[in-house]
Design a protein around this nucleic acid. Structure first.
Length: 416
RNA sequence: GGAGAGGUGGCCGAGUCCGGUUGAAGGCGCAUCCCUGCUAAGGAUGUAACGGGGCAACCUGUUCGAGGGUUCGAAUCCCUCUCUCUCCGCCA
């Protein structure tokens, strides 16, 4: 949800239109908002009269009452009518306003998909290894897509053997980094209520990407971001304790609707995977620093894993409604000869906090918190990149240096 | 899964049976001031959030777990939902 008060500011509006907001919709919201104010005033006036009259009945003597009650009934009738009209307008305004995106930050480039700015490139673009990640995963006995499909369907896989140890090593290693930076580790619920999906901004837009459990009215989260966002719903945070940084580890479930035929090999895109996610509640004036911190951590992880990657400042037109700015980290995937997204981090400013009603107490009142999120380790996908960059000519896998002490493995050979 | 008890302001806790000066007693905490040589103790006053209008003093609306209903009027009555606690059963 955006701040309607800022809507008349041309710069705010421009930032919104850069993200593709329909100018007609903006105008409509402006008009509804002004009508809303007028009508609110009128309704409150009536309500005041109604309240006053009712209070007098309480004080009146028994024989005065019938006349007063009748008079109050008339005011009530007017009020009921005005409230109905106001309620309808209020619903219209909310519905329209919810569609408006958070304006893009000034440092975000114009354009749409593939028009982001590459802000950093690290490492080269190595030639494809003998086997792509999918073939290698089968070869070394780590990934079994066929069995996954048999048991659960397409886009499900079994991860077995040393891959599991390496996955856990990745998580353990990265979690240690995050804790050292003041992140509080969290294993959140992965089944959440519908209201939580709405508040976190995933419903109704992304409803089709989410698995539901109709019998219990619960939904499987596509990312730990959802339950992490829920941790401070309706809270009034103490500014002294901010920023609050959380490292959430959870399984993620995605229907991947509309991706038929895309990334069908291996475990690049699956319905279920584990992820270590970062989430920050920040005071308004610190959120841009926190955003850079998230990027710094993501880059450090890739640097230490010695993966070649680039960082993209995503273009305005390609940002989701909630983000003012987003960096994607893309690792070079040799078998495809392309950079593919591995992690990303976004600053939502107060867009999400407004819906979650999470405020920060300040000296003179309160302000909405800012929320940010970023991927630390998307476990399965990270394994994909590792399988391509760390497979050796002899068909073995050389465990990245930083993970060795976490899994107790140096080199892994296929089963005999 | 069965039975019961509860959710009131930053916290604790009255009020709910019998609806009306109760946005809500009292206490704790907090803030300012007074008293005191200092500390302890004591005294006075103040102390919810969020929205709307106004340059402002201020005016006004909403909120007693959530939503709906009855009523001129609901913390109080009715319905639905939700969460917490206790007991029984079951269980990784």
């Amino acid at each position: 949800m955006i701040d309607l008060k800022q809507l008349s500011d041309p710069a705010y509006r421009a930032g919104m239109e850069r993200k593709g907001a329909d100018p007609a919709l903006v105008d409509q919201v402006l008009e509804l908002s002004s009508k809303h104010r007028d009508m609110q005033l009128a309704v409150e006036e009536l309500r005041n009269r109604s309240n006053t009259v009712s209070k007098e009945i309480g004080k009146a003597s028994p024989d005065e009452r019938p006349a007063k009650i009748a008079a109050a009934g008339l005011v009530k009738a007017d009020l009921t009518e005005a409230e109905a009209a106001y309620g309808a307008l209020d619903a219209d305004l909310k519905a329209a306003a919810l569609q408006l995106p958070l304006p893009a930050h000034e440092s975000v480039p114009d354009g749409g998909e593939d028009e982001g700015t590459v802000v950093a490139t690290v490492g080269g673009t190595p030639e494809a290894p003998p086997m792509d990640h999918a073939d290698f995963g089968r070869h070394i006995g780590w990934v079994n897509n066929e069995l996954g499909a048999e048991v659960s369907g397409s886009r499900f896989a079994y991860i077995t053997g040393a891959a599991v140890q390496i996955e856990f090593a990745l998580v353990q290693w990265a979690l240690g980094k995050l804790v050292a930076r003041g992140f509080n580790p969290v294993v959140p619920p992965v089944l959440v209520r519908e209201q939580m999906m709405i508040d976190a901004g995933f419903f109704p837009t992304d409803q089709h990407q989410v698995y539901g459990i109709p019998e219990d009215d619960l939904y499987l989260v596509g990312t730990a971001e959802v339950p992490l966002a829920g941790m401070h719903r309706k809270d009034r945070l103490d500014i002294e304790k901010l920023p609050l940084r959380y490292a959430g580890f959870s399984t993620c479930f995605r229907r991947e609707a509309g991706t038929y035929g895309k990334d069908t090999r291996g475990i690049f895109r699956v319905h279920q995977f584990d992820k270590l996610e970062m989430f920050i509640w920040s005071p308004a004036d610190k959120s841009w620093d926190e955003h850079e911190l998230l990027l710094e951590i993501e880059r450090e992880i890739l640097d230490e894993l010695e993966l070649p990657y680039r960082v993209v400042n995503i273009a305005a037109g390609d940002l989701g409604n909630a983000a003012a700015k987003k960096y994607d980290c893309e690792v070079w995937l040799p078998s495809e000869g392309a950079y593919r997204e591995v992690t990303s981090c976004s600053n939502y400013l107060d867009y999400s906090a407004r819906r979650l009603d999470t405020r920060v107490k300040t000296e003179n009142g309160s302000e909405f918190a800012h929320t940010l999120n970023g991927t630390a380790i998307p476990v399965a996908r990270m394994l994909v990149f590792l399988m391509e960059h760390y497979q050796q000519a002899d068909g073995t896998f050389s465990v990245p240096e930083v993970l060795r002490s976490f899994c107790g493995l140096d080199t892994v050979a296929p089963p005999a």
